[in-house]
């Protein structure tokens, strides 16, 4: 894995890396991904599932409910006039 790739991945992941980190992670990931090359030898297959056991048709009925008082949650988020403040948009 080259530095250009690691820089792009870090940007997508919203991580700022120092030069030293960039170097080190590139080296680590290179070794790791090389060892993962064995995956290419596994037979290809289109059958896959998201879970190791079947989880099928688990649904919730459309009944409104709130178990936790939203006021408690607002309190944890430091709201201003009930809004949650965040950083600059532009």
């Amino acid at each position: 894995m080259d530095r250009e790739t690691i820089a792009k991945v870090a940007k997508v992941a919203r991580l700022a890396l120092t030069d030293e980190e960039m170097e080190r992670y590139a080296q680590d990931l290179d070794a790791i991904l090389n060892s993962f090359a064995v995956l290419d030898e596994a037979p290809a297959s289109d059958t896959y599932a998201l879970n190791p056991v079947p989880v099928v048709d688990v649904l919730r009925e459309d009944e409104p409910a709130q178990e936790i008082d939203p006021q408690l949650l607002r309190g944890q988020m430091g709201t201003y006039e009930d809004y949650v403040r965040g950083p600059r948009l532009s």
Partner: peptide, 10 residues
């Protein structure tokens, strides 16, 4: 990613 999902089934 997709290959690993298939490997898990295998």
């Amino acid at each position: 990613y997709l290959k690993s999902l298939a490997v898990r089934q295998m």
